[in-house]
Design a protein around this nucleic acid. Sequence first.
RNA 1: GCGGGCGUGGCGGAAUUGGCAGACGCGCUAGACUUAGGAUCUAGUGUCUUUGACGUGAAGGUUCAAGUCCUUUCGCCCGCACCA
Length: 769
Amino acid sequence: MKKYYVLEMFPYPSGNLHMGHVRNYSIGDVVARYKAMQGFDVLHPMGWDSFGLPAENAAIKNGTPPAAWTYKNIDVMREQLQKLNLSYNWDLEFATSSPDYYKFTQWMFLTFFNNGLAYKNKSYVNWCPDCATVLANEQVVNGNCERCKATVDKKDLEQWFFKITDYAQRLLDDLDKLPGWPDKVKSMQANWIGRSEGAEVDFQIDGSDKKLTVFTTRPDTIFGVTYMVIAPEHPLVKELIAGTPQEAECLALIKKVQNQTDIDRTATDAAKEGVFSGVHMINPLNGEKIPLYLANYVLLDYGTGVVMAVPGHDDRDFEFATKYNLPIRPVIKPNDGEEKELPFLEVGTIINSGEFDGLDSDIANDKITEHIENKGLGMKKVNFRLRDWLISRQRYWGAPIPIIYCDKCGIVPVPEKDLPVLLPENVKFTGQGKSPLSECEEFVNCKCPLCGIDAKRETDTMDTFVCSSWYFLRYCDPKNTELPFSKEKADYWMGVDQYIGGVEHAILHLLYARFFTKVLSDFGYLSVDEPFENLLTQGMVLKDGTKMSKSVGNVVSPEEIIEKYGADTARLFILFAAPPERDLEWNDDAVEGSYRFLKRVERLFEKKFGESKLRFDVHKCIKKVTEDIDRFHFNTAISAIMELVNVMSKADEISPDDLQAVIVMLSPFAPETTEILWKKLGKSGNAGEQPWPKFDPAALVVSEVEVVVQINGKIKTKLMLSPDMTAADMQDFVKTSEDIQNLINGAEIVKIIAVPKKLINIVVRQNGF
RNA sequence: GCGGGCGUGGCGGAAUUGGCAGACGCGCUAGACUUAGGAUCUAGUGUCUUUGACGUGAAGGUUCAAGUCCUUUCGCCCGCACCA
């Protein structure tokens, strides 16, 4: 028996199921039920991504402890899920906030730490003032907190990081191993990782033995450098400008930039601003003395935070040079010889570059890089946009980072046998000041596991994305108390054959889960190094053209729909109304249509039962539904069943076998109704446990097929012909058939195209026709 | 600016490889049954100047044949965005 692991992204227990959940889980459930009926050993689990800020915010607001609030929500939502008749194996259920689970989230941290993949570092980080915590780069959207939308500040803080940058190249390369992922998601990830090839080049500071290193992707333009730019908040700046006449002006710019939000700073139309630093640099290739500017358009955390400016061949440098009257020197001319306006961004022929003149610019790129390396002025370098993953949060409701600080031993990991580091329950939630954990004395104070003297615990917790980066592995072995999962069980079930969820997780969750899988694979805990074989990103559920939301007031509650029509109608509508990856417009009238369809199926029992005359229709339908589910075209699979039901409704009599086929095929979509009808049919067992029907090719054999007859590509008539006719037979037939000769009406036949079982196209000369 | 995607009736959508455009459903129209209809059933429903012609955002092209392939172009959505 072959295994099949189908997984839907587990929900955050916010309190209520919404239509997006219903869609996500209905899709997964059809796949799970269908695969089980086909004889696969199916893993179809559900759980709860239950750490996170809303629970803590609720505690601050209402005084309810986060745990109580969370587990109450889980109970409500579990019941709502069960009303949808989803085929989960509830024995595998877990919540990431339970000590049994987060024990192993902490185990993950230790595994990363012990292998040099978790480190603590002082860094200029994103700080959300409303959530009172730091955020990962990925959680900052347009300069705002992804969760609460507050404007994100920058703070210099010591934080824990996972070294995802060590895996940047593999995370990029292995996207090619994922043909079952949407291109969109892969390109978003590739974009986010942002690999670029170039060189690091050292520029000497004039009158000093110090140098600054730049990263450039265009070494071919290095003779065109007319000035240099450094990020104002660069740590070396204050030292560089000390004592220069420009110092005061520079300090003012630094202050201004630091007070700017990321949105203002990075807006497309943000004005470029800069100040001369008072320092000059030496171009290592031509020895020229060039000014160093502080400028707001240089990013501190990309490359080296220092840029060589080539205004002749870069938009931004051109804009800046124009504004501040800096020289602009072309070093590439267009190949077609035509004069082009600067900045000239394309490839061309090198000029004004000494020994490199006359080379093609892309060849010069390699030659100049080689030259720089030979002279010891720099080296080839690949840069990534991807930053290390900041995982520490100054919040309570998360997995505590298992680290102890000892005055004597330094940073000490909690020994594995002492896991889990439990979250204390007697904490206060004021929403002010320091995090609740850091104010909990009995949590903070502990003994050093190495030397036994008084020590203090780390009070930061882990980003909830850490919890969700390995949950799909826990389902393979959820009761394991020794390890997060046994290798044997994970190797049996992994990778996930079909993963289903919203596209909003295209970068964060999916990238982190891939990273975890690779790390665990590298250290021998797992054989696969990609977690999700096939990914389906479902579209949103809309009402009146916009996403359902409380503020817009267009929310349709799943509970009310289930109450009114039953779960089957809700499932059927949501699968029928649009293909899964597209956005779905909720339509109350169309929901009625799904309800009516189920009633129509029930009414088939009122028909006269007898011999089947519909064998062809039934088997055509089985073929179509099977193929459509295989390619996730649930909407057309359902429409095929509707067509069959329409045929059966019109037939004089139907056979119990016909009816059985309909009920069995419909069972993955509408499990509740079909079980009732299965009993009504007098069958034992369950409809959902029947083997998936196989179509009989013999039933699809017909003596005649409809063939379209075209003249010059225009349809003229349709004929019933034997399906066995070859193209040659059909061409002969054209010549002898009286009907067709009448159509041609004496015109001269130029050519006859015949496609067996489909069409005949007779090409005739226009004159006389 | 870069990357991904979409554009088909009044609406949601269908049309695996180029081969009958509009399946299926909603809505609408008419009729039947009915005290009643927001129930059910029957028939119809792309457009038009209806013996036929036109029609898949627009314009070209390839082909016997184009929603599907190629070129240009317009519009919309999503992601990233001063990444050197």
